[in-house]
Nucleic acid binder design. Structure first.
Lengths: 352, 352
DNA sequence: AATACCTACTAAACCGGTTTAGTTGAACAG
DNA sequence: CTGTTCAACTAAACCGGTTTAGTAGGTATT
């Protein structure tokens, strides 16, 4: 139906050079500039006929603008980087999905970098993204590269944190309300009648978001006048596991009647341990864990958890970052997302 | 230690223009070309002193080449697209990880597109990636866009399939050996004494990879002289669930003694159903499922499954795609990855 | 001494768009 | 009849690299 002479038909398009703007311009008998104006919707001083000719030429040639050329001039990549520990995680994959959905809606792309909990890989990812000139970065940082991150921020790279805070900065971060969540979980156990609640955690001295959880736990104990016994704080490390075995903890003088785990990895390892030792949940000990568990409804004992909102966190992080990218002067923000307790069957009143 | 005059110190680097190649050239007193040669490791005709001067200038200025400019000239993006149904899936996230790990190792980036099982979104993702001029695409296609995909292939876009085959093409795809896996699972049940094995599947008429599963199931039955009763083929759809409820199937004349589910989603829905109806696994009926299950060890009854190798599939898909990108004339391949049965506790000999 | 052949560079075109600073011709005002 | 204004464009510079073709100067060959 085109009024233009069709191109000689080429069977194998692979050998055909990509159509470019100049081809469109020639076919429409206008200059490159005019076609560019057209593409960018600046019709202020363009006649209807010219518009029609250009539209037809674009269609005829099946022209698609080259975003690389466009980005070179604009000095933007329309791409952000996302640095996470492992995209494979239950919550993490959902956070990524949130980031990605938001980005796609804004014509941005997200590049994922996995660090596998290695600060060095984290540093390399940061550098790679910087060199790649992404427009911004969302990071769940290890807390070991704070100085480095500050340097990139100083260089003008917009950076948004999630999950773990960047020490010394209350800015541009989005996280769950860990303190409130830990308070709620602890209170929930207390109201069930628990007095000796074991707080199972990674070292939280230099990591705010872990510290916050502890603060919530401690606050709940205090509110109900329950002594905060340091023996009930049990430590776990990714590499070495539990400092004291859960079994030995349960056999100690101050045996807890409930476990409160601060991370899915801890919950998982605890569960394995308890399984092996034939310690029954919730009959022998109650359990509430941070982070939701996939397919928990099919568990021998479905575990009650504090559910974070990873998808929402991802969306909000992306939103915050894009705001930062597009308005450099805006004030930075700290956004808190509420958690909620998903009651399942791992918490009951203590026996004794 | 630099022998060059340091630049005047600027406190706020955000306001500093990015250093570019010409700046390095000027500082090192050479031409742009020479710096470019240096950056690309072509030292054939370059004096040692010049190299040293350029290296120093780069360091001095903290210069990082702009990949956009580089890509514009090279007409490459060093980026591939990955189209999946949902990155959040247990296996899918691992496949993505495999793709990404391989890509990162080859200096490529992967852009993820989620279709949420919608063919239209799939078509849009394809178009977006094409317009973006990614160097290639890995897709777990719905099977509904085969013609469209062929068009992109004709346009010269390297495309690799995984999980679901592109009908009419045995080329550039990588998938699990579904037939063998289904055969093995069926044989496993037969050897336990099962004769009436219910094959729970999505419609497999036009989807090869589902058909293959059925072929494996049928082949095992035939090998052991067990009649292939069409009543034991039960259909499930993502939108509407089971055609006949598992309970009714178990109450029919030809009640199966084992279920064999062809997809994690079917396994999950079956499990929910069985839970509600208080039908016990494996006492009332055995169950083996396609696709591994996260945290299965904590299940009331840990489910025996056929485990695919999503991470390996991702790696192989990326490898195949990059080979295609870098050698257009190479012959295409179909790669099969073996599955294995992960025995847990959902299969026992039938009671009767 | 003239020619060939290196080495060690450089100028300029190029990639495919965007943008700025014009240019042209017609309508209208004075 | 000249000057101004405005619609409707266009030429050329620009983004930041890569690449091609070429050049200058020195040494080896005949």
């Amino acid at each position: 139906m085109s009024t233009y002479q069709p191109l000689p038909h080429v069977l194998n398009k692979q050998t055909m050079a990509k159509v470019k703007l100049i081809d469109v311009a020639q076919l429409a008998s206008v200059s490159k500039s005019t076609v560019s104006q057209y593409l960018n919707g600046r019709f202020d001083y363009m006649s209807k006929e010219t518009q029609i000719r250009i539209r037809a030429a674009i269609k005829e040639l099946d022209y698609v603008p080259n975003p690389i050329a466009r980005n070179l001039k604009a000095d933007k990549t329309k791409t952000i980087g996302v640095i996470v520990r492992d995209i494979t995680g239950f919550d993490t994959s959902r956070t990524i999905r949130g980031v990605d959905d938001f980005c796609k809606g804004c014509d941005y792309n997200a590049l994922i970098y996995n660090t596998d909990f290695d600060p060095e890989t984290e540093a390399k990812s940061l550098e790679a993204l910087y060199q790649m000139r992404v427009d911004g970065i969302i990071i769940a940082s290890s807390g070991q590269n704070n100085k480095l991150i500050s340097e990139y921020i100083d260089k003008g790279m917009p950076i948004v944190h999630f999950q773990l805070e960047h020490d010394g900065s209350e800015k541009n971060l989005i996280l769950s309300d860990y303190r409130q969540a830990a308070f709620d979980a602890t209170e929930y156990l207390i109201k069930l009648g628990h007095q000796r609640i074991c707080f199972m955690t990674q070292d939280f001295k230099n990591v705010k978001s872990r510290n916050e959880r502890y603060a919530g736990y401690a606050a709940a104990l205090e509110k109900y006048g329950i002594p905060n016994n340091p023996g009930l704080i049990q430590y776990w490390q990714r590499e070495t596991g539990f400092e004291h075995s859960p079994k030995s903890v349960l056999e100690s003088d101050t045996a807890p009647t409930a476990f409160f785990t601060q991370h899915l990895a801890i919950t998982t390892e605890l569960l394995t341990h308890l399984n092996q030792e034939n310690i029954a949940i919730p009959d022998d000990v109650s359990l509430i864990g941070f982070d939701d568990i996939p397919m928990a409804e099919f568990f021998k004992v479905p575990v009650t958890v504090i559910k974070q909102e990873p998808y929402i966190i991802g969306k909000e992080a992306a939103k915050l970052l894009l705001e930062n990218i597009n308005d450099k002067n805006r004030h930075s923000q700290k956004i808190m997302i509420s958690c909620s307790i998903t009651q399942r069957q791992s918490c009951i009143a203590p026996k004794s």
